[in-house]
């Protein structure tokens, strides 16, 4: 069977492979190489070793964006997952209309980042204006705004994953615990939470990597105002590439660091939560 299919390699694989080479492999390889070069267009690239990386670490705005992003990722992770978990618990109870509520809470997830940013900009500025304040005057207004925005966007999504997890817990576990005299809280912490670890792994992984990679929402809600103080890493990299000539190499070096950081954090997070999963 393999032999007869193999002759069809050009039909089955080649289109995807070619596009994948253009859309991913070449840009990735070139990106790695250019992070060690100084250039404005690729034809004048000159190898400079680790100079770009050193300049990236000396860039205080970049370092600030790292801390700001890290804090944001952690805060939004906790906030989103707590809310989503509580919602999932509530919406798996016997209640009229749970399906409609799920539909509503999930909906903002489908709206694009740019659109979300401008929707919430209108709302936050409308709330702040009577006090003579605005989103772009203080980096922490932007921070809280972004947390609320991504929570609004992602809570419904995480809720769906948690609901699927809750529904997969066999009912007899809770029954047995009730017979043994466990109360509601004990059942939550001793049965539901341990059995939910696979869902928690997925959700925390998604929310922490999403938090680090956030771009569209950051660009549209605050655009880094005031003076780059609410700029997150992805936006900082973008601004380095396209906002400052002569800094393209540094931008690429930052992008490589960013890539390593996102992969590293994802792996660490998976390892931590996976180790807490229990066999059914």
């Amino acid at each position: 069977m393999q032999k007869s299919i193999r002759r069809y390699f050009p039909v089955f694989v080649l289109p995807t492979l070619l596009a994948f080479t253009i859309g991913f492999i070449i840009p990735f390889g070139m990106g790695l190489w250019l992070s060690f070069c100084e250039f404005t267009t690729v034809t004048d690239a000159k190898f400079v070793g680790f100079k770009n990386y050193i300049r990236a670490f000396q860039d205080t705005v970049f370092l600030h964006s790292f801390w700001y992003t890290a804090l944001f990722a952690v805060v939004s992770l906790v906030f989103i997952n707590l809310l989503a978990f509580l919602l999932a618990l509530a919406l798996t109870q016997k209640m009229r209309g749970t399906n409609i509520f799920r539909t509503v809470f999930f909906m903002p997830n489908l709206i694009g980042g740019i659109v979300l940013g401008y929707i919430w900009q209108l709302i936050f500025n409308g709330i702040l204006a009577p006090y003579g304040k605005a989103l772009n005057l203080n980096e922490w207004y932007g921070f809280v705004g972004l947390v609320i925005l991504v929570a609004w966007q992602q809570v419904g999504y995480m809720m769906i994953i948690y609901i699927a997890g809750l529904q997969s817990i066999p009912g007899d576990l809770h029954e047995a615990a009730s017979i043994d005299g466990a109360n509601g809280l004990e059942k939550l912490f001793k049965i539901t939470l341990p059995m939910m670890m696979p869902s928690i792994t997925i959700c925390t992984f998604l929310s922490i990597t999403n938090g680090f990679k956030l771009f569209d929402q950051n660009l549209s809600l605050t655009a880094g105002e005031p003076s780059k103080m609410s700029e997150m890493m992805a936006l900082n990299i973008y601004q380095t590439f396209f906002g400052r000539t002569g800094w393209e190499g540094v931008g690429q070096a930052k992008a490589v660091l960013f890539f390593i950081l996102v992969v590293g954090i994802g792996l660490i997070q998976l390892r931590i939560t996976r180790s807490k999963e229990v066999q059914q």
């Binding site: 973008y238 890539f259 992969v263």
Partner: peptide
């Protein structure tokens, strides 16, 4: 797992 920023310029 590669973030878009890694390849966007190239």
């Amino acid at each position: 797992v590669v973030p878009f920023q890694m390849v966007m310029f190239t």
